[in-house]
Nucleic acid binder design. Structure first.
Lengths: 200, 200
DNA sequence: TTACATTTGCTAACGGTGTTAGAAAATATA
DNA sequence: TATATTTTCTAACACCGTTAGCAAATGTAA
């Protein structure tokens, strides 16, 4: 009686193909022009079928947002694990974050952009909490060992995250006029200031 | 023969009413739900009339983006003029920028958000260059007087702008859990670090 | 194998979007 | 008053997300 199993397997398959097709379309034409009908076309089903797998278009986007944060977290953990020293960890995390944003521009734009996702969206993404944890730990470590032990680690984390994100999103505004070196320098500049600020 | 004049006057009037109606709709329902037809309804004209005044919907948005930067620049200049000391100027500019973003959330979201406007958009907004000039001057002044005179003012400007924007946009993601104090502290924290970084 | 029940996927539609073509109405010119 | 011009409208096109309801395929049981 593997019928139910087979059906479930097929259902999972279709769901996966929806996501795959959606992703392909996004890569080719960007988020703005992604449509349910185009996805349906690509998977060779009619449009309403998609609603058997996702509540609506936003749910598809949300799925990608989640995946984006999962991937980002993975990369950050990997970067962090390469060092024991929290100072080096923070630096590695910053570079990994930067790299992720530009290597997965589509993801990053969905995760943070696209009309500045509202509070509701944020609540539905527990992955953002993991992200906080990953970065918070080394910040705490550094503060503990510093002349600045009283400082609020959340405050430092917030500064870290904001600057990084700001750097990236301001950069994505403009074109890439061989500004790569400038950006590398800005990132370095920020990190030096940030770390020396924590040391006190 | 004031006919042509009257016609021109009327045309200007209609154009203004389009922008006014659009703005009212945005304030009430947000950018996402702004539509040409709703604007037409509000100004009591049919939809195609709008295309006699704007090439397309994007052109209307662009107009608001321009106005946003104009207003922002005005506020920044006003803040800057209150001080002669470049250090105080930078601080005042940062606070004014912050205030603008939250007092004119709709503007700020259009200016920077809404799908991360592409390179094409940026080119069409000369006001962004003025913004650069306003902030660059005090940074230069400070650097000149510092132990750090060799540093690149553009690099510092970029850091300044990015951090400020990052702080704001990360903040707009989440809800306002009485985080006002935290944010004020983060801003202060950043400014201290930034200024001491310039002084060298 | 036949009869029924269930699941699956479709077509067609609703109400919306930006935008354009072309007719009609209002206005200006001779 | 007749003609030319401008202004404004209706109607349509080609999309969009989403849903209702029917048809076909599939599974279950006699």
């Amino acid at each position: 009686m593997g019928i139910a199993e087979r059906k479930l397997r097929q259902k999972v398959e279709v769901k996966a193909s929806i996501l795959q097709a959606a992703w392909q379309l996004v890569e080719k034409e960007g988020w703005q022009s992604l449509s349910i009908r185009k996805i349906a076309d690509a998977i060779e089903y009619s449009a309403p079928v998609i609603y058997d797998h996702f509540a609506n278009k936003e749910a598809i986007m949300l799925e990608f947002t989640k995946r984006g944060f999962q991937q980002l977290n993975e990369q950050l953990i990997k970067a962090k694990e390469q060092f024991a020293n929290p100072e080096q960890q923070i630096e590695a995390i910053a570079y990994a974050y930067w790299k992720f944003a530009f290597n997965h521009k589509e993801y990053y734009q969905l995760m943070y952009g696209l009309g500045m996702p509202g509070c509701e969206t944020v609540k539905q993404i527990p992955e953002m909490a993991s992200f906080t944890e990953i970065v918070l730990a080394p910040v705490r470590d550094m503060l503990a060992k510093s002349r600045n032990a009283g400082a609020d680690p959340f405050l430092k984390l917030h500064t870290f995250w904001s600057t990084l994100h700001g750097l990236i999103s301001i950069n994505m505004l403009g074109k890439n006029d061989s500004r790569d070196e400038l950006n590398a320098m800005v990132l370095k500049d920020f990190l030096i200031g940030f770390i020396s600020g924590i040391k006190g």
